[in-house]
Design a protein around this nucleic acid. Sequence first.
DNA 1: GAAAGTGCATGCGTATCCTGATTGTCGAGG
DNA 2: CCTCGACAATCAGGATACGCATGCACTTTC
Lengths: 225, 225
Amino acid sequence: MRILIVEDEPTLGQQLKSSLEQNGYAVDLSTDGEDGHFLGSTEEYDAVILDLGLPEIDGLTVLGMWRKEGRNFPVLVLTARDSWSDKVAGLDAGADDYLAKPFQTEELIARLRALIRRASGNASSELVAGNVRLDTRSGRVTLDGEPVKLTAQEYKLLSYLMHHKGKVVSRTELIEHIYDQDFDRDSNTIEVFVTRIRKKLGAHVITTIRGLGYSLDDPDAAPRE
Amino acid sequence: MRILIVEDEPTLGQQLKSSLEQNGYAVDLSTDGEDGHFLGSTEEYDAVILDLGLPEIDGLTVLGMWRKEGRNFPVLVLTARDSWSDKVAGLDAGADDYLAKPFQTEELIARLRALIRRASGNASSELVAGNVRLDTRSGRVTLDGEPVKLTAQEYKLLSYLMHHKGKVVSRTELIEHIYDQDFDRDSNTIEVFVTRIRKKLGAHVITTIRGLGYSLDDPDAAPRE
DNA sequence: GAAAGTGCATGCGTATCCTGATTGTCGAGG
DNA sequence: CCTCGACAATCAGGATACGCATGCACTTTC
């Protein structure tokens, strides 16, 4: 885990740096807003500790610039000022947490842990097979990055196949998982939807295994010409 | 956005509830740990406000149980005690933010906003999708820069969709997050409000995915079908 | 008490699904 | 190598469930 500290008081900055390093973090320290902004824009950090009372550029300004640039690392804001209106401004400017000086180092570290945990918490569960991607959280499918519109049944079928990538899935298994309970077993709906999916995503995505069922293979895993 | 408050002091609890409701949240209120835990385990919340000093079961215990069950909504912890060791314990137990009593209601709401914003992966307090902008701080919505008047429910629905931009949101999910507990699940209210929002903002903002739900797309991110 | 907001019910139009028939492929055996 | 049977793919038309729009009654707000 890599942390950036932007803090103009050298004493406090150094003290924080060594505390965090003792806790296993890699720490970069910047003492003014301009330099700090540059580091945050160019390097990759898991979290940033930002002092509001900076010379030259205000901390809030720096934060706003990062957010405009699309930087979305979690930011913990430090300030000597203790009025709640400042807190509100900081939080609304895009800060994720707030700590008023003076503070206990233990508390800072605990909040940092919580921030990083949460930031990594919403990782999107994405299934990938070749040039097809299916995000189960958002329920959306892309082909070579281009979004593809699937109907409800098409999505269900593709989703099941991608969850069982590489495995041969029989028609009855598909019917059992896509439809509820009693459904006319001898109908060719599955074939119909396989056809439709192939039309939208390309024929190669779903392989037919004659007499057994279908299979969805990842070309990367099994390179074949 | 739907919030759960677990607070044993009835006066404070009610006061918080109405404050949040005035700010457009759907709020469930629980006055003891056991009931609160049950609600948090069974219903869908976007954030939880949890008092540590509860009768029967301790707040920290409740929080720990939720996290063990895999519940990962953001939790804001309240406590009368002001020692930092309690804060550390709370944060390590899985809390995402911390507020010591007494506090300003404005600060609570600001922190709540920040929590929800981060939980949905957004860095800025202003949500943008195409030519529609929604400022969560002021509760204003603009279309091509022109302010648009939305009713309370319309705003709630749009806000939820914008917090989950790109995701396909089912009708039940919308109902669960816009309304509190008891509400008739099978009604066409959602469709009605979708219609009304489309009338005000244009039909293109909300996409219908037949059989699955609705989705709010950013034209920049999704150029063509 | 007027005005605005909310939620339910109705009828309508259409995208989506399923069915059944037809056409197309594969593979074994002559 | 050709033929034939079995299985799979495709096509198109009708049925249906789904979502949309509108009107109306109830509630809330000022």
